[in-house]
């Protein structure tokens, strides 16, 4: 009575089999690797594109833009060489200003970032900008060398002086606007001689 239906130790099992070609695993493997390679290169391209499209830290790049504009119009407008040099010096001075400013900012931005005050997007932009400013200054020096061979050393010294003097000028020129703001904020009534009307 112990041998009844269901004791399935000794019966053979019928398993379905399918014929698979030898090439199947090869094709599968190569498809996989190919798709990963394509994905990798596309991703890298996208990253580079993103980096180049990152908005600059600074609002504008006028010094640089003006130089290239003048350079391109040089022939048709018959622009004197010294004007181009002036534009290049202006560009150099601006690059010096930006690199000093970024150095000063980097510790502060790092602290703000680590404390969670700004997001990853800004941090990326900032690091990108540091590299760009460096690059910009190097490009400027190359242009200087092209304009006047051997000028580079003097150019750097001149750019530094110009940078500081321009800052002083800007501060001096802002006095008029500051005076206006003070009058408005403090509600001052001044006579023609600049004295307070009692």
């Amino acid at each position: 009575m112990s041998q009844s239906e269901g004791s399935s130790f000794y019966t053979t099992v019928d398993v379905e089999t399918k014929l698979v070609s030898v090439y199947t695993p090869l094709i599968y493997g190569s498809l996989l690797i190919l798709s990963l390679i394509i994905f990798g290169s596309q991703y890298r391209k996208k990253q580079i594109k993103e980096l180049s499209e990152l908005k600059s830290i600074f609002d504008e790049n006028e010094a640089r833009d003006l130089y290239y504009e003048l350079k391109s119009k040089r022939e048709e407008d018959n622009i004197h060489e010294k004007v181009i040099k002036a534009a290049l010096l202006n560009r150099g001075a601006e690059a010096v200003r930006r690199s000093i400013k970024l150095k000063e900012l980097s510790t502060q931005i790092e602290i703000i970032y680590k404390n969670g005050g700004i997001g990853d997007d800004y941090w990326k932009r900032f690091q990108n900008e540091v590299k760009l400013v460096d690059l910009e200054f190097k490009e400027t020096l190359q242009e200087a060398e092209m304009l006047q061979p051997g000028w580079v050393q003097l150019f750097v010294a001149l750019s530094k002086e110009i940078c500081f003097n321009q800052a002083l000028s800007r501060r001096y020129d802002s006095i008029a606007r500051r005076t206006e703001t003070c009058i408005k904020e403090w509600n001052l009534k001044l006579d023609d001689n600049g004295r307070l009307i009692e």
Partner: peptide, 29 residues
Amino acid sequence: LTDARSINVNQINKLTTAIIGESNPNFTP
């Protein structure tokens, strides 16, 4: 932004005037 542009243009003009007065191309500070 034209404010920045005009500032830069003025700065360039000032530089031009100064450089034109220099006979020596390797002018110093």
